[in-house]
């Protein structure tokens, strides 16, 4: 062995400097910024709070009416989630059925599109005739409005299996059910979980529309009665609560999606 010393080719580790992670902070900062602009804008324009309340006035209203806001928020969350769960079950079922064969897909797809084109608010009166006002029409409206994206996505995932994969398996003697279980259903899962993010926000639209028109509880109803009393800050408080519930549920769906179908979010190093 020679005795020559070779300087270790190791760069000194950079000092762990305190550095703000702007990307992670930005959602918070932008939200605060929005509220600040809103506050300043309303104050400068001098609009009365019966027309456009400032955020501080809205937060005041949230504190002041916390008990009914909390109760109605839970009611809306309950009807939305219930409708959404029914939509998941029905959407998966119908999606699998439609995606099963090209004929069913071709036959039912236009009907589904037509059905989706109907404004769901127009269905609320019919639901009221059938079930009376209250929770049931709200749950059903949430279901009706949110199940379509789930159906379409599941069916698309099934209907777009690569023909080569199908040939390889069919040559081995695979039945339709084998192909669906081994390839079709796992393959449609990213589509399915992706659609949940869209569906949950639609479900909120459905339940609130129904509560506004035909219910005596829930945020939709609360906002409708606040509006008739010219209590505009409370209307905005309701909107804010809806936004928060929407964000939380969306984030939950995004998390579930990532957990369940990590393989579909792979890095693009190959393929």
């Amino acid at each position: 062995m020679t005795t020559t010393q070779i300087a270790p080719p190791v760069a000194t580790a950079p000092k762990p400097a305190f550095k703000l992670n702007w990307v992670q902070l930005s959602p918070v900062l932008y939200t605060i910024g929005l509220f600040v602009i809103w506050e300043i804008g309303v104050r400068l324009s001098g609009l009365p709070h019966t027309i456009f309340p400032t955020p501080t006035r809205v937060f005041e209203a949230i504190v002041q009416y916390w008990s009914p806001i909390w109760k109605n928020s839970l009611q809306t969350l309950y009807t939305t989630v219930l409708g959404f769960i029914i939509a998941i079950v029905a959407g998966l079922g119908i999606g699998l059925f439609i995606g099963w064969s090209k004929t069913i897909y071709a036959g039912l797809y236009p009907i589904m599109v037509g059905f989706n084109a109907i404004p769901k608010v127009a269905l609320v009166p019919i639901l009221v005739i059938w079930f009376g006002i209250g929770t049931v029409p709200a749950v059903l409206t949430a279901f009706l409005i949110s199940f379509f994206p789930i159906v379409v996505n599941v069916a698309t995932g099934l209907a777009t299996i690569e023909p080569e994969t199908e040939d390889v398996l069919r040559a081995l003697g695979a039945k339709k059910l084998d192909i669906m279980l081994k390839v079709g259903i796992p393959r449609s899962m990213p589509y399915f979980f992706g659609s949940l993010k869209v569906a949950i926000t639609l479900a909120f639209v459905g339940s609130v529309v129904s509560e506004t028109v035909a219910s005596n509880s829930g945020l939709g109803n609360m906002m409708a009665s606040a509006q008739s009393n010219f209590n505009v800050p409370l209307v905005f408080a309701g909107l804010l609560m809806l936004a928060i519930e929407g964000i939380v549920m969306y984030a939950l769906m995004a998390w579930v999606e990532k957990r369940m179908t990590g393989w579909a979010h792979r890095s693009t190093m190959s393929n």
Binding site: E162, E164, T165, D167, V168, A171, K182, V183, P186, R187, M189, T261, W263, A264, R266
Partner: peptide
């Protein structure tokens, strides 16, 4: 059978 496209299932 093996095709030009490897059609491995990514999950």
């Amino acid at each position: 059978m093996a095709f030009q496209n490897p059609t491995m299932l990514p999950w």
